[in-house]
């Protein structure tokens, strides 16, 4: 099984485990989409801004003495995007409704980020 297959599997399992999630993005820290089920027309931008948000979150954590960054959350009226570091050079982003089971989304997404880390290092 290739790394790409492993990442696609993580993406699918996350969606199956948490039906509330409406999009999963695994992107490089340079903003390139690696594995995703976001619509093609959205994927390019979501990958880039997820990587950017992760970088910015990291800097905020450093400058505000928050410790190792665990999660960046952007909450809008219609949903939220949670972004996790998933290895040294990649991020995992998930889109979920703002009124869903946020606890479960966080738990599963964080776990999926660890799986991605194992695959990508």
């Amino acid at each position: 099984m290739s790394k790409q297959d492993d990442l696609n599997k993580i993406t699918k399992e996350l969606r199956m485990n948490v039906p509330d999630i409406s999009g999963v993005m695994i992107a490089s820290d340079e903003g390139l989409s690696i594995a995703t089920d976001f619509a093609e027309e959205d994927a390019v931008r979501v990958a880039a801004v997820s990587a950017a948000a992760s970088g910015l979150g990291n800097r905020i954590s450093q400058n505000a003495s928050l410790g190792e960054p665990e999660e960046v959350m952007v909450k809008g009226r219609d949903g939220l995007l949670l972004i996790y570091l998933a290895g040294d050079n990649s991020v995992l982003a998930v889109r979920a409704p703002s009124r869903g089971n946020l606890g479960l989304v966080r738990l599963e997404a964080s776990s999926a980020a660890q799986e991605v880390r194992k695959v990508l290092g």
Partner: peptide, 16 residues
Amino acid sequence: KASGIKEALLMRLVNI
């Protein structure tokens, strides 16, 4: 340094 957004990522955002 300020935002954590590396040159390659910034260029990607710019190119988009």
